[in-house]
Amino acid sequence: MKLFKKLAVLVILATVPATVFAQGGRQSPDEFRRMLDVGLKHRTASELYEALKTDAHGGKQSPPYDQLPDWSGLWTAAGGNSFFDPGPGGIMPKLKPAVAAVLKQGAELAAKGIEYDENLSQCGPPGFPRWLVIPFLREFIVRPEQTWLTSETVNNVRRIYTDGRSHPAPEERYPLYYGDSIGFWDGPKLVIHTNQLMTRSMGRQQPSQSDQMETVEIWQKVRAGVIEADVWIYDPALYLEPWYLKRTYNQLPNPTKSVRIQYWNCNENPNNEVYKTPDGSTNYKDLTFTNKNDSKEPTR
């Protein structure tokens, strides 16, 4: 049995990096480095956003429909780099020591089968930037004055204002799950700046982002059925330097149009209720099809 367990661990170790590299495989290390350097040239996300706007000669606000790209259909995340994994070529994010320690501890707990999702287990919002990496269906609704980037997971909508408005005045700002996003169009590219983000967990056994986090994204359809997002993350509580990642979203073949986004409610089915166990992991509450007194903590 021990031999089988060791084999399982080896398979996990062998499989995960392969997945990571496969996900980021479309981007060469040189291209990744070039994009990372774009962020490193600017001290803040605001400065990067303004530089991109200057490069786009001010960009376009509220362009007419015939100048907007077609992002219709259903989309799913196809992979890409995550917030703390190395980029192509093994380029590592420069993390604050405390963040690296949280990641290490989280990996150790996960290896013991201890995981809990502070955001999603109770159907709370994944928030941004985790929104970029969650699975399941997405729809992108492009209008001149706003673009809505939506996801099936917990029914969330990111509103990107492209009508020329600014972020709220500093005295009107408060922490938001998805932040406040403004943008402009640079031809078929949507450039987004997001601030007003909330301090909260970035995922299972992941560190927390801070309310200092700001991001810049460039979204574009690179070919039929494929949309890519280049993302620069600035959060001095996490990273010693700005970090960059690319996410890819593939259009879902849906010839019969039978697959649709439907509402999520964790209370709809009581069998989906989970709780945080004393050791910090996840287990189901009372399942309706079992005896109420048969619940006991998992053995690890």
Partner: peptide, 25 residues
């Protein structure tokens, strides 16, 4: 125990919550 086959075949997304309440292999 079908560790290799299970892991390689695993496509479950489990975004709402972790799947640690289930046996891995």
């Amino acid at each position: 125990v079908f560790a290799t086959a299970m892991l390689l075949a695993s496509t479950s997304l489990q975004a709402h919550h972790s799947a640690v309440m289930f046996e891995e292999t």
